[in-house]
Amino acid sequence: MTGDVWSFSENAAVASEVALAAEGLAPAVQGGPVVVEVGRARDGVRGGGERLVLQGCPQDGPAEALAECISRAAKSLGPAIILVGATREGREVAARLAVKLDVGCLPEASRISSDGKTVSAERSVYAGRVSATLTSPLPCVVTVRPGSFAKSTGATGTVRNYDAGTPEVRVRRLGSSRRETGSVDLKSAKVIVSAGRGVKRKEDLPMLEGLASEMKGALGCSRPLSSDLGWLSEEHHIGLTGVVVKPDLYLAVGISGQLQHIAGMKDSKVVAAVNTDRDAPIFQASDYGIVGDLYQVVPALRKALSARH
């Protein structure tokens, strides 16, 4: 079938990535890329091709409403493929959309191609140990793993308004608080120093932050430090259920290397690890390893870094 390739994300940064994926895919289905926006076209979203602006839908969602509006537009305009950023809200949008449109859905794609009849998506499964290529007939909804595509630099073409109406929403928002954020942008960091359970106290984190900043990098962590202990905000959390990163250097400090963590950093260019246990799985996923107590190794690393030239 032929048709356009739509892209959508409620997150502006992810929207520009998904737009680039749509640009790459559009020729295969003899259509154009279309960036779907709700309420108005956002300044921060880049993407070539048409801008389809859905009117009537509340601009900030919720996902229930977004899915209903996008499905109304899709039913009348007939896109071949709809790409949705695989954020927490985006997954709900995509799931509902696939059911409403009664089409297939391929999840968590990091690469997408089409032969004009089907769409194929490469994704990581089994906690990152396996790469799988899944194929489904067109039309199809695909969720796109954030960080898999660069951001589009395309300029907006025509803007088309579509009145999608105002759907009924059942879940009421009572309030929202932003997570405390530093200026953490792990996805673009070239160097990441990542802290795990080997760190004994929250007060010891500045030592690792110091190492990270001396390496011109950012601080990340494994799941226990953010989700269980709450020492760092969720945006620091690297792993299957957190952020997926691929820096030039990933330095894992006091991280044992559970598969769910490895899934979040396995595509790093170089991986180094510090751990007291020589048999810790993290060393299997590392280029360089130091067996030792992080409370001695980290200061030694800082000293070695400053001892240059």
């Binding site: 194929s120 499964v125 489904s136 396995k266 060393f283 590392s286 390893g289």
Partner: peptide
């Protein structure tokens, strides 16, 4: 709707796995 599983293969975990030995200072250097 059908989903066909095409290829499936292990992610290459081609890491050097070099342990840096010596005293803490030596290993760090």
């Amino acid at each position: 709707h059908s989903v066909t599983i095409g290829s499936m293969f292990a992610h290459s975990t081609d890491r050097k796995r070099i342990f840096l030995e010596g005293t803490t200072d030596e290993a760090a250097a």
